[in-house]
Every structure is written in C-alpha cells, then in structure tokens.
Simulated scan of single mutants.
Amino acid sequence: MEAFLVSSGIVALAEIGDKTQLLAFVLAAKFRKPLPIVLAIFVATVANHAFAAAVGSWLTALMGPDLLRWVLGLGFIAMAAWTLVPDQIDEDDAKLAHYGVFLTTLVAFFAAEMGDKTQVATVALAARYHNLVSVVAGTTFGMMLANVPAVYLGGRIAGKVPLKLVHGVAAAVFAVLGVLTLLGAGAGVGL
C-alpha cells in the first residue's frame, strides 16, 4: 500500500504545471471533448508508466543493493531539483494531428511523457519499491488526479493553482525520499 500511496502523491504533485498537464489543457481547449481525452491520457499513462516501471525493476536486478541505494537516493534528490524548474510545452507537443480526439491525445500524451519528470520518477519508484503493479497503479492514479481536473476545468483553475508552492512541496517530498534512501531507509525491502 505504501508503494501505491507514495507513487500517487509524488506523481500528482510533480504533474501540477508539468508539460503533460499543459498539453492536457491544450487538448481540452482544442477538442472540447473531455471523455475521450481523459481515456486517452489514462491509456497513454498506463503504457508509458508500465514501461518505466519495467525499466526500474530491471535496474534493481542489474545493480547490487548498495549501488542501487546510492543511485536512487541521488536520483530522488536530482528529481527534487528538477521539479523546481518550471515546464513549458514544446511546439512539437502542441501540434495536433487530425486523427480524432482519442488517437491524437494518446499519441501526443505518450510522446510528451517520454523522458518527463513523472516517467523518470516512475522508474525510480519501481526500483525503490520492487512492486511494479502498485507503482504503475499509483503513478497512473497520480497522473489522473492532476490531469482530469485540467481537462474538465481547464482555464478556470489554471491560474488559481499556486504552482510554486506545489512544486516546492513535490521537491521536498523527493528530497526527503532521497535522503531517507541514502540513509538506508527501506533496507528491509532490498535497498
């Protein structure tokens, strides 16, 4: 349960103001069909984060516990710093093909998520918790927590979310996780 809850919280916080959330705003404004957009975000996230979690599990098997602890600890601290850097949507991410709402959203969201903070966090969380299903379910839930309101409420909430505060909280959570990992917390789960 801890893997699910931590994964959900970290990804939900990290997604606020992230380029994929900005993409969700753009797609919602362009198509004005929230249900297919939300379904496509869900499918793209499950596929992307399942791949990321598999990479995290593979890294766990590849590295010894001591090296993994250092890589994860420093990785979480790097994620803390990265979270404080505001995202902007790329022009390529905003280009929308004419293949229908669902397919356009699916492809655009999956591509935008590649190498994104939340995907990298999913790799680290899967390596940290050794529970692929809980991590993917948690990170997907966190993505949906952040993006469903973006799709349905769009411009009405965009200016009302204190992004600096949210990014600060997310960075603090990543930093605490990094420090705890470096200090050996989780040693009972193979770190």
Rank of each mutant, 00 (worst) to 15 (best):
M1V: 10
E2I: 07
E2N: 06
F4P: 05
V6Y: 03
V6F: 05
S7R: 07
S7H: 09
S7L: 12
S8D: 00
G9W: 03
G9P: 09
I10P: 00
I10W: 04
V11Y: 01
A12Y: 00
A12C: 13
A14Q: 02
E15T: 14
I16R: 00
G17W: 00
G17S: 10
K19F: 15
Q21L: 11
F25L: 15
F25Y: 15
V26M: 06
V26R: 08
A28I: 04
A29W: 05
F31Y: 15
P34N: 09
P34G: 11
L35H: 06
P36I: 13
A40Q: 10
I41T: 09
V43P: 04
T45I: 04
A47G: 10
A50W: 01
A50R: 00
F51T: 10
F51C: 10
V55W: 07
V55L: 13
W58S: 11
W58D: 08
W58T: 12
L59R: 01
T60A: 13
A61K: 06
A61Y: 03
A61R: 06
L62D: 06
M63Q: 02
M63A: 10
G64Y: 06
P65L: 14
L67H: 02
W70R: 08
L72T: 03
L74K: 06
F76H: 03
F76Q: 01
F76L: 08
I77L: 10
I77Q: 00
A80Q: 01
A80P: 03
A81W: 12
W82S: 14
T83F: 02
L84K: 07
D87Q: 09
Q88T: 12
D90K: 14
E91R: 15
D93Q: 12
L96C: 08
V101C: 11
V101A: 13
L103K: 14
L103M: 11
T104Q: 04
T105A: 14
L106N: 09
L106D: 07
F109V: 13
F110D: 04
M114L: 15
G115D: 12
G115C: 14
T118M: 02
A121G: 15
A121T: 15
T122H: 02
T122C: 07
V123F: 06
A124L: 15
L125E: 02
A126D: 06
A127T: 07
A127H: 02
R128Q: 12
R128H: 10
Y129K: 00
H130W: 07
A137W: 01
A137E: 00
A137G: 12
G138C: 12
F141N: 05
G142I: 09
G142N: 05
M143S: 11
L145E: 03
L145A: 13
V151H: 00
Y152E: 07
Y152M: 15
Y152F: 14
L153D: 05
I157P: 05
I157D: 04
G159Q: 10
K160N: 08
P162M: 15
K164W: 15
L165W: 13
L165N: 06
L165D: 07
H167Q: 15
A170D: 10
A170H: 05
V173Y: 10
V176K: 05
G178N: 04
V179T: 11
V179K: 08
L182R: 09
L183I: 04
G186Q: 06
G186C: 08
G186W: 06
A187E: 10
L191M: 12
